[in-house]
């Protein structure tokens, strides 16, 4: 299982280095998603399948979609179409594609050898995590929900478009 770990770690380091050196934000996002996938495989190897699932679903699924929405909102117009056209050139997606393909091969290998290779590490499944999360850490869950509510209200307040002329929302001209 060590080889799989080292390959994933190498992919994580390479893709994270590519994230902070890209010029285009979309390219950086692609590499960052690859980095999150490799970290998820490392979680899976370490006996934390629930954390691996959350990493893919919430980080790579939800948070990165927020980034994509905002980046796509920023550049509207003809240059956005030109950028879309550039996304179909192979040199844009060949790097993340190759790294993701290696990760995919690793994923199949890990799934097929699930019982044998993890013998040294105790697997902590979602059930144990849930029992501890809603037992001793219940106050933390409440605080996290409060934090998410504050983030929602704050993002709504900041994201509202302000009227330039000072008119109210319902008034005419």
């Amino acid at each position: 299982m060590n080889e799989v770990y080292y390959i994933s770690a190498t992919i994580a380091l390479i893709s994270t280095l590519m994230v902070i050196t890209r010029l285009n934000a979309i390219h950086a996002l692609l590499y960052f998603i690859v980095s999150l996938f490799s970290v998820a495989i490392i979680f899976f190897i370490l006996g934390a399948p629930f954390a691996a699932a959350l990493e893919v679903i919430i980080y790579a699924g939800a948070i990165m979609v927020l980034f994509v929405f905002v980046i796509m909102m920023l550049n509207l117009g003809p240059e956005a179409i030109e950028q879309e056209r550039q996304l179909f050139r192979p040199e844009v997606w060949i790097g993340p594609g190759v790294l993701s393909f290696v990760l995919f091969l690793e994923f199949i290998y890990v799934i097929r050898n699930y019982g044998r290779h993890l013998s040294g590490v105790a697997v902590i499944g979602p059930k144990q995590v849930g029992i501890v999360l809603f037992g001793p850490y219940l106050l933390g869950v409440e605080l996290a929900s409060l934090l998410l509510l504050v983030g929602l209200v704050g993002a709504y307040h900041l994201g509202r478009r302000r009227r330039s002329s000072g008119l109210r929302k319902g008034e005419k001209q």
Partner: peptide, 25 residues
């Protein structure tokens, strides 16, 4: 061999979600 590490990871995840929404706004 404890579940506490994953729980702190879940809290970090919630914090990252709140932080990134406010940051993007």
């Amino acid at each position: 061999g404890q579940a506490d590490g994953q729980i702190i990871f879940i809290f970090i995840l919630a914090m990252a979600a709140a932080e990134v929404s406010v940051g993007l706004a």
